[in-house]
């Protein structure tokens, strides 16, 4: 039992350390450890050492840590959402977050909303758009006091289609390069914008969401036997569905605001986890989270190195690596 818990933790720690080192500026793992120690002790160093510290603080640490947290959050969100809507193909973005964010951020850029916020302009606009899309979907899916899961699933698809059309419309009407670039970010995702300044807030918020999903594992299990059955097993089904969807909306919204819509992690990690350890949420949820976090930071490492100094969207890497891997496991298991 201890081994089963220890292995993912060790792999995660190892992956995080590795990803701190990979990138255009070379840092060996040992140098990274030394740099971290110097920073903690506020000690100085040579010019090269200072450069390494700057790269770590400005870029690698925030994007790796936030990347890991976002990966965990999207994967657990996906795992729970798939259970709530009884569909293994569900992904947290079916709640409309990424296209909601894309359309409002693109429009915000074109119209100059919140321009005074500087680098936070896009995240704020995007976050608001994601929140608005998901809030609308939540209210739209309410039916006599309960959340209709089918309506949620199909409504989300409708909202995403609408958002997508809006984005293209805005680009056509305001053909400026930065607007087009922004769209790619929202729909494919990227961790380059992650900053140390809000790292703790994001970590706390995402950790709280993931933990909440985790502690309800028994109820989630019971829900897989159907909503009626779960009710007869003492699960407060209506309440649970609403709170879970809200929590998933929050974690998706936060993820989207920081790093756009990184596809595939929320879909593949939970399915992979179930292939490895079975459906029981007590096992599959932590394994999903672990896989999501680890896979995402490795994909980000690839995204920033293969065509360095040009970065490609991390969402493209997750899909290119995750797609075949997923197909391979699926064929082996089913």
């Amino acid at each position: 039992m201890n081994k089963k818990i220890l292995l993912p933790i060790l792999v995660s720690a190892f992956s995080i350390l590795c990803c701190l080192c990979i990138g255009p500026v070379r840092i060996t793992p040992w140098q990274a450890v030394l740099a971290l120690r110097r920073m903690l002790q506020a000690a100085g160093g040579s010019e090269k050492e200072v450069l390494q510290e700057v790269v770590l603080v400005q870029s690698r640490i925030p994007r790796t840590i936030i990347g890991y947290a976002v990966g965990c959050a999207l994967a657990s969100g996906g795992a729970v959402l798939q259970g709530l809507v009884h569909n293994q193909l569900a992904d947290p973005y079916i709640l409309g977050a990424s296209y909601g964010a894309a359309s409002s951020a693109t429009f915000g850029l074109a119209a100059g909303w919140f321009a005074s916020l500087g680098i936070y302009q896009t995240p704020v606009n995007g976050g608001l758009g994601a929140a608005a899309a998901m809030a609308f979907l939540f209210l739209y899916s309410l039916k006599g006091g309960r959340l209709d899961m089918e309506r949620l699933l199909l409504g989300g698809a409708g909202i995403s289609m609408f958002g997508r059309a809006l984005v293209h419309l805005i680009i056509k009407m305001s053909p400026r390069a930065f607007v087009t670039g922004s769209t790619a970010f929202w729909t494919e995702g990227g961790l380059a914008g992650a900053r140390l300044s809000y790292l703790w807030w994001v970590l706390l918020l995402l950790a709280a969401c993931v933990l909440y999903l985790g502690i309800r594992y028994r109820d989630l299990n019971a829900l897989q036997c159907g909503e009626e059955t779960a009710g007869t097993l003492g699960v407060p089904v209506r309440y649970l569905q609403k709170v879970m969807i809200l929590v998933i909306s929050v974690l998706t919204g936060v993820s989207v605001a920081i790093c756009g819509g990184i596809g595939f992690v929320g879909l593949v990690a939970p399915n992979l986890a179930r292939l490895l350890v079975g459906g029981d949420y007590r096992k599959s949820l932590p394994v999903s989270a672990f896989l999501g976090g680890t896979v995402l930071i490795w994909c980000d490492a690839v995204a920033r190195t293969v065509f360095a100094p040009v970065e490609i969207s991390v969402g493209i890497v997750t899909a290119i690596i995750g797609g075949p891997l997923f197909l391979f496991f699926l064929k082996r298991e089913m």
Partner: peptide
């Protein structure tokens, strides 16, 4: 209603009775 969404073992399903 006795369909189950994911792959659970028999023991895990029976354990749900303890919820």
């Amino acid at each position: 209603e006795n369909s189950v969404t994911f792959n659970y073992t028999v023991e895990e399903i029976v354990m749900m009775g303890r919820t």
